[in-house]
């Protein structure tokens, strides 16, 4: 029997495991992608301690840290979570059964699909959700990024290293990425290579059957409602991956995020949530905030199991008071 089962192996889940292990809680992590969404970042420069690191390399280091503390990471998806007399029962997709007294759900978000004609048909034939993986296939080609937040703008900068022309097509009138990425993209735009098309949606991905040939726009660009392209990268954000939680009766907010308290508690006793899946992540969707939430969730699991607060270096009375208010 585990003290704690952590579902999700991204920054929140891994950080929760590190803290739980150091609290001597017997825990296990289940998730098919160690590092989660971070593995898709070609360059990460806002994680303290690293000047510049590929998301995947960072994820591997954190994974090692988790395993080094004696924890197994099961590299697969969870199929079902059930309540049990002593906590929770988790069935993985390969039908492995695990039991835990407490559970942290940190399954993050799934990539948002545009749900437009051509998107599914041309996946792998010019449509991609991973610039790090696929930008090099578009050497000297024309490519568009759909979206306007960090992933889209960072992805556009990366893609411009290979492509001949890179468009960002965004539905709003202003990009909303980190200023440091915006600055990089503006440099690309001053050359003929980069161009942002604002206030525009794509309504269809066009192709010749074998590959993408362009997109249809809902606003004319340079007098035409189609744009010729070889590739389309969709970076339109994520939707919370809560399908495992609905049968349990976990309370979600209107857009579908898990509603948590400051201590990462859900409405079910013993069930905690951390990272991009929570409503609290709306403040700042970053690995560093997800990791903080994971740590808090682990401390809350400790408190739930032991009936007392998790030990902490600055656990003075004054701090406890602060927390109580």
């Amino acid at each position: 029997m585990n003290d704690l089962i952590i579902v999700g192996a991204g920054p929140a889940g891994l950080s929760a495991s590190i803290y739980a292990s150091r609290y001597k809680l017997k825990n296990v992590v289940i998730g098919k992608l160690i590092g989660g969404t971070m593995t898709l970042a070609h360059k990460v420069e806002n994680i303290p301690g690293f000047l510049s690191i590929a998301g995947l390399d960072w994820a591997q280091k954190v994974g090692e840290q988790v395993k080094n503390l004696g924890v197994e990471i099961l590299g697969e998806n969870v199929g079902r979570i059930e309540k049990a007399a002593t906590g929770f029962k988790v069935m993985t997709e390969s039908e492995k059964e695990l039991e835990g007294k407490t559970l942290i759900i940190a399954t993050g978000t799934e990539r948002r699909k545009l749900k437009i004609p051509g998107e599914k048909e041309y996946l792998g034939k010019g449509v991609s959700y991973c610039t790090t993986c696929d930008a090099p296939f578009f050497r000297d080609k024309r490519v568009a990024l759909i979206g306007g937040a960090d992933a889209a703008v960072a992805g556009a900068v990366h893609t411009a290293e290979f492509a001949q022309k890179v468009f960002i097509i965004y539905r709003r009138d202003q990009l909303r990425a980190e200023p440091i990425w915006l600055e990089e993209w503006q440099k690309t735009e001053t050359t003929d290579k980069g161009k942002t098309i604002y206030n525009t949606n794509i309504t269809e991905i066009l192709g010749d059957g074998d590959r993408v040939t362009g997109v249809k726009l809902d606003q004319a660009y340079q007098g035409k409602d189609t744009l010729e392209l070889d590739g389309v990268f969709i970076e339109a954000g994520g939707v919370p991956a809560t399908s495992l939680l609905t049968p349990l009766g976990v309370k979600l907010t209107e857009p579908g995020y898990v509603q948590v308290t400051e201590l990462m508690e859900t409405n079910l006793p013993g069930l905690f949530a951390a990272g991009d899946i929570t409503d609290k992540s709306a403040v700042l969707v970053q690995a560093v905030t997800a990791m903080a939430q994971g740590a808090i969730a682990a401390a809350s699991a400790y408190k739930y199991l032991k009936g007392e607060k998790a030990p902490q270096i600055l656990g003075t009375e004054e701090n406890s008071k602060k927390q109580a208010t």
Binding site: K32, L40, A54, G55, A59, G75, C130, T132, C133
Partner: peptide, 14 residues
């Protein structure tokens, strides 16, 4: 696969 691709590295041992 390619060396630059994160998910590929996850897929390899599987």
């Amino acid at each position: 696969y390619a060396d630059w691709c994160g998910p590929c590295k996850m897929a390899a041992p599987v």
